[in-house]
Amino acid sequence: MAANEQHYTLERPTFDKPVKILIVVAPYYKDIADNLLAGARAEIEAACGTHETVEVPGALEIPTAIGMAGRLANYDGYVALGCVIRGETTHYDTVCNDSSRGITLLGLSGHCIGNGILTVENREQAEVRAEPDGQNKGGGAAAAALHLIALARNWGGSKRGVGFMPTEDDSYRIA
C-alpha cells in the first residue's frame, strides 16, 4: 500500500524576507478542509510566513480565485485546498481534471502554487490524507508553494505583474 512507503522530503526553505501566502480552500467537505487548512497553516508558520485564507464554493473555483488574486493582490504564493470524492457520475473526472489543469496553467504562467486538492475514491482515503498528524497533504501543499517561492526568489527576485501593482506603502504603480 502506498501509505506505507517512505518518501524523501525536501528541507524547509528559509527566507531573508517573510513570505505572504494566500490559501484558497473549497470547504465542501468541511472536516476534511479544516484538517488540510491546519496542516497548511502550520507549515507556513514554521517557515515564518504569513497567510490569509479565502473560501470558494468548490474545487473548480480555486484556480479562478488564485488567478484573480495574482492580478489584483500582492501574494508571494498560493495554496489550493479542497477535496473531490468520486461519485456515481463523470462529474468527478471533470472537477479533478479541470481544477488541476487550471492550477497547472497558473503555475506555468509564474504563480507559485502548492496543489492540495485531494482526488480520492472515498471519504476514508480523504480523511487519512488530510490528517495533519498523518499524511498531512495540506502541509505538503504549503511546503510545495514555499519551495516554488524560494526558487522564484533565487532565480529572479520579485514578480512582475500586468496592470497595477501594490507598492510597499500600499499605493499603486503601473506595472
Rank of each mutant, 00 (worst) to 15 (best):
M1K: 12
A2T: 15
N4Q: 13
E5K: 15
T9C: 11
R12V: 12
R12S: 11
T14N: 08
P18I: 12
L22Y: 02
V25P: 05
A26Q: 10
K30A: 14
A33Y: 02
A38P: 00
E45H: 07
T50A: 08
T53S: 13
T53E: 14
V54H: 07
P57M: 11
G58D: 02
A59K: 02
E61C: 14
E61Q: 15
I62M: 01
A73C: 03
N74H: 13
D76T: 07
Y78C: 06
V79L: 00
G82A: 07
G82E: 00
C83H: 05
V84D: 08
T89R: 06
T90Q: 01
H91W: 10
C96F: 08
C96V: 07
T104D: 01
L105H: 02
I117H: 12
L118V: 08
L118A: 11
V120A: 09
E121G: 15
N122G: 03
R123W: 11
A126E: 11
A126V: 10
V128W: 09
P132C: 02
K137A: 12
G139Q: 00
A141T: 04
A143P: 03
A143D: 02
A144N: 04
L148V: 09
I149F: 06
A150H: 09
L151I: 15
L151W: 13
L151V: 15
A152K: 12
W155G: 04
G157Y: 00
S158V: 12
P166D: 12
D169L: 06
D170N: 13
D170Y: 01
D170F: 10
R173E: 15
A175G: 13
